[in-house]
Design a protein around this nucleic acid. Sequence first.
DNA 1: TATTGTTATACTCTATAACTATA
DNA 2: TATAGTTATAGAGTATAACAATA
Lengths: 145, 145
Amino acid sequence: MLDLSHGADADAVNSLRSAVMRLARRLKHQRVDESLSPTEMSVLGTLARCGSATPGELARKEHVQPPSMTRIVALLETKGLVRLEPHPDDRRQKVVTSTGRAEAMLEESRRRRNAWLAELAGELDEEEWAKLRAAAPVLEKLAHQ
Amino acid sequence: MLDLSHGADADAVNSLRSAVMRLARRLKHQRVDESLSPTEMSVLGTLARCGSATPGELARKEHVQPPSMTRIVALLETKGLVRLEPHPDDRRQKVVTSTGRAEAMLEESRRRRNAWLAELAGELDEEEWAKLRAAAPVLEKLAHQ
DNA sequence: TATTGTTATACTCTATAACTATA
DNA sequence: TATAGTTATAGAGTATAACAATA
């Protein structure tokens, strides 16, 4: 358990919150595919990691409301990036699966991010990058799965 | 310089990007004051750190366009959280300064974040927190400023 | 009666373009 | 002619409320 009587952790969260919010805004501007929002890209990434998922599961993982995920999934389907199938056990639910086209887009996304990475590399030294690499899995955990 | 021929850094940025976007969405939901957006809170934090700034400087620091900052500053002024004064040297510019009321709100913000922190503490061990604390300044640097 | 997903609607936040005023 | 800030307008993304289908 953390000792909240010390100010250090509160300050760290303070700094973390502010940095994450502003960095998210920067990240929005270095989109891979201008026609896909950050959340839509994130859904494709989640599907690539987890395989298939229902719209409800995706909504919970991405922290958006179900109606938002309905719209996102519908858009991704029209672009041929996901496939929608009936759920085997429950006819209310659907199963969302990413397509090979989504896989190719994620690969292209990675290539483009390398360019962004190279640009940022000038601003950070190796020690700083090491700290980021170490923290990335923890941030993923905070972001909840 | 980073060695981009290895996939490790690209993967780290991949993970980082995804986590930052989703964490930003979670953070949006644990607002201190429901009437202030994350950017508006961030502006108050920036002013608390940097003292005064012009709207143009704030727009660059927060990575929003000048018209957005105009609206934000106007809202904060109506709430008595910032004070607007004429620039001493340039009559086109203005000087934005945070008020004691903003300071009190930031203090309250810190207290509330402690509660959020305590909740998250159950999900992380001390080593994970150490990694976050180490990475926070680097994230701030990436977020620019 | 509860749950999954959808439709309809409205809101929040931001951007772009066009304008005013100072430099 | 360029720059700081504003006004007006439009767009993206999300949420809430009400609904349909299934459990």
